Amino acid sequence: MKRTAGIARTVSIALAALATTAVTAGAVSEAPSFYTVRNDHGGVIVDYAIKAAQLEQTGQTVKFAGRCDSACTLYLGISEDQLCVTPSARFGFHLPFGSSSQGNRFATTYLLKKYPRWVIGWLRDNGGLNRNLKVMPYEYVSQHIRPCDTQVTDL
Rank of each mutant, 00 (worst) to 15 (best):
A5S: 12
G6V: 00
G6I: 00
G6C: 00
T10G: 06
S12W: 00
I13W: 08
A14C: 09
L18R: 12
L18D: 14
T20L: 09
T21I: 11
A22R: 09
V23Y: 10
G26A: 02
G26Y: 03
A27L: 12
A27Q: 10
A27M: 14
V28M: 11
S29K: 12
E30C: 12
E30I: 13
E30K: 10
E30F: 11
F34S: 09
F34V: 11
F34D: 11
Y35T: 12
N39D: 15
D40V: 05
D40A: 11
H41V: 06
H41P: 15
H41N: 07
G42S: 09
V44A: 13
I45E: 14
I45F: 02
I45M: 04
V46Q: 04
D47I: 10
Y48F: 13
Y48H: 15
Y48L: 02
A49Q: 06
I50F: 04
A52H: 00
A53M: 09
A53N: 08
E56Y: 03
E56K: 07
Q57I: 08
T58N: 06
T58K: 05
T58P: 01
T58L: 12
G59Q: 02
G59N: 10
Q60L: 07
Q60P: 07
Q60K: 07
T61L: 15
V62N: 14
V62P: 04
F64H: 03
A65V: 06
G66V: 02
R67W: 11
C68Q: 07
C68A: 11
D69S: 10
D69C: 12
S70E: 04
S70T: 02
T73I: 02
T73C: 08
L76M: 03
G77Y: 00
S79M: 04
L83M: 12
V85D: 03
T86N: 15
T86E: 11
F91V: 03
G92K: 01
